[in-house]
Design a protein around this nucleic acid. Structure first.
Lengths: 195, 195
DNA sequence: GGTGTGATTGCACTGGGTGCAATCATGACT
DNA sequence: AGTCATGATTGCACCCAGTGCAATCACACC
């Protein structure tokens, strides 16, 4: 009674694969939920039993991924400043992600191609930032500082991930560190005045 | 031939007001576009001639607001570092916004009440960050630095605006400066190590 | 074989959003 | 005044996302 699937198992996974394939063929907007369900041997109604809406099928792993990041964060070195801890956690998560190279790349382009998906992606990133901020608060970081550090870290991750997409061979960890430096440069005071 | 409205003028504005009123009465989700159009003395079809979708009616001013910020940015003191320039522009824009106090507050709560609106709001903020980044590049700021400074400035603005919502009497300009300091604190290196 | 459970389905329905052709007020032009 | 071009508005038919509800069905367990 593993609680899943009736005829063929893995209904959810089949729906994801069908959706992914169809989106790749004809683009997100031109594929209907009914078609996705069809290809997976299921019905439209069943699709919505598994996913809250059409967009969500592309963000199925997000929940687990976010949890994994929070775990990395709690495990991070106690001495690290808030942003370094967050960047550390996101670096590990990014390395995990780099394994799935190909599908990650396709997913990336899909999201870029649809405003709907961009919106959904943004809210996922925001949710991630909130989770990281909570993790930082658990490390005694003051409220607002935690919020900013988390948002900054997510911005760094996004930028580094962009870089990595353009050169899959690059060392993701190095890209993260470079982004961190660039961000510090961006938020620093004007050079004329001392700190 | 001012190009607008047929019977009564200001169709767009009337739609906005109708929408705003209905949303305030019964919440965003429980109001249909047809109802909004009805109250404005127009039809559903006409609503969609003016707004791309239901959410957009709440973000009608966003375009102009963003343009205004970019204008402030180009006018900002040449000596200011990227983030200070961006914060300066957003501070002025925030002060403008503070004039509309009441409706701004209502709009704020509406957005907070609906995931759909939050998504839309996020993409508007992102678009704003992109525009600011472009403005910074026009000031000779390197690409990636411009991106980060713009995102940081928007984050600062959002935080300061949150603060201001809780205490309308506060000086927005001061809240912005405080947020900026908090962000610098958040992105700084661990205290043990020198800069 | 009977039964409970959870996944799947069918069906009807609401509401957002679009394409297209028709209509209509208005300003411009003669 | 009458005609005309223009742009806003409208009606209508349509597609699709998403939901509530009741029925069905495969399966595990007894």
């Amino acid at each position: 009674m593993v609680a899943m699937g009736r005829w063929r198992p893995n209904a959810e996974q089949r729906l994801q694969q069908a959706a992914f394939a169809l989106f790749a063929e004809r683009g997100y907007a031109d594929v209907t939920v009914a078609e996705i369900a069809d290809r997976a041997g299921l019905t439209k109604r069943t699709f919505f039993n598994h996913f809250a809406d059409k967009r969500e099928v592309l963000f199925a792993g997000a929940q687990a991924w976010q949890a994994s990041i929070v775990r990395y964060l709690t495990a991070a070195d106690e001495d690290l400043g808030p942003i370094d801890a967050a960047v550390d956690a996101l670096t590990r998560a990014g390395l995990e992600l780099a394994q799935y190279g190909d599908s990650a790349h396709a997913r990336r382009e899909l999201i870029a191609s649809s405003p709907d998906l961009q919106e959904r992606n943004l809210i996922k990133m925001t949710s991630l930032a909130v989770a990281i901020a909570n993790g930082l608060r658990a490390r005694q970081v003051p409220d607002r500082v935690a919020t900013f550090a988390a948002q900054a870290a997510v911005a760094i991750f996004t930028a580094a991930y962009d870089d990595w997409a353009e050169d899959t061979a690059a060392d993701f960890s190095a890209l993260m560190q470079r982004s961190l430096l660039q961000l510090r440069h961006a938020t620093g005071e004007a050079q004329a005045v001392g700190a």
